[in-house]
Simulated assay, not measured.
Amino acid sequence: MSLEFCRQVLSLDPGIRFAGVANPGGKLLAAEYREGLSPLLDRNEVELAVARTVLHAMEDDEALQGKLGKTAYSITTCEKVKRATVPFHDKHRRILLVSFDTSARPGPIIRKKILPLINSELGWK
């Protein structure tokens, strides 16, 4: 996934602040912020947060997938931002990380806009 993919995610809804793609090791492969946005975290903090988020998501997915099924997405609500992780479930095991304004509704945005984009990008229906 490329910077262009991150830009496509950002274009899906005005409530999306950030889109990034990480590998299973927690390394950010591509990322983009909404134009004109002042990030809440500096680059080092973003890298640390991405690593922690991805590792946590991967551990949860592996530990519970057999009984609960694959994770479709996960949303965390903080005081200043809402964050979501969306696994690609492809052979590379990448994860999309998205942050939203607090007024945004991440669930419907993910289900109606982001998941169809991912499926299209991966050639799935």
Rank of each mutant, 00 (worst) to 15 (best):
P39L: 08
Q65P: 02
S103G: 11
E47Q: 14
H92G: 04
L10C: 08
N23Y: 02
K82I: 13
L117E: 05
R7N: 15
I95A: 00
Q8E: 15
K113C: 01
I95H: 01
F5H: 05
G25L: 11
L40Y: 11
V54Q: 00
R34C: 02
K80W: 07
L68F: 03
K113Y: 03
D42F: 07
G123H: 04
V98G: 01
N119P: 00
A19M: 07
V46H: 08
E45H: 13
R93I: 04
N44V: 15
E45Y: 07
L37I: 13
L10Q: 08
I16E: 00
F88C: 05
A30M: 08
T77C: 06
N44R: 15
L12S: 03
A51I: 04
K112M: 05
R94Q: 11
R105H: 12
G107R: 12
L40A: 13
Y33P: 06
G123Q: 05
R43S: 11
A63N: 10
F5T: 07
L96Q: 02
D101P: 02
S103K: 13
R105V: 06
P108W: 02
D101I: 06
V46C: 07
L40V: 14
G20F: 02
F5V: 08
E47W: 02
A84C: 10
D42E: 14
A30K: 04
S11F: 01
S103N: 13
G107T: 14
E45S: 15
Q65N: 13
V9P: 00
V9R: 03
